[in-house]
């Protein structure tokens, strides 16, 4: 067992733990991706659903927002399938 694969035994500050590093990297990437995706959802759905900002958010605006989120997520799936499934067109 080399020094990288040994779990942090005592001297955790100086010892590099690859598994912890991997977990941390994955978490940070996932968080960054989620934040970016949320920001995109906000901007796209604001454009679509809040066309004339009123004194409060109306019921039709809220339902538009839910639909917009669902459709945007669906669109992401369609795009991803179009790019990576082997059905040239």
């Amino acid at each position: 067992m080399d020094s990288f694969s040994s779990p942090s035994s005592g001297s955790s500050a100086t010892q590099f733990n690859p598994d912890a590093f991997k977990d941390q990297l994955k978490n940070q990437l996932a968080q960054a991706y989620a934040e970016e995706f949320l920001e995109t959802l906000r901007s796209k759905c604001f454009d679509k659903c809040i066309t004339k900002p009123g004194s409060s958010l109306g019921g039709s605006e809220s339902s538009c927002i839910s639909r917009c989120m669902d459709r945007y997520i669906e669109a992401t799936g369609i795009i991803s399938k179009a790019l990576f499934s082997a059905s040239p067109q």
Partner: peptide
């Protein structure tokens, strides 16, 4: 269809 075509 537009979305898929657009990507390709």
């Amino acid at each position: 269809a537009c979305l898929a075509n657009c990507a390709r």
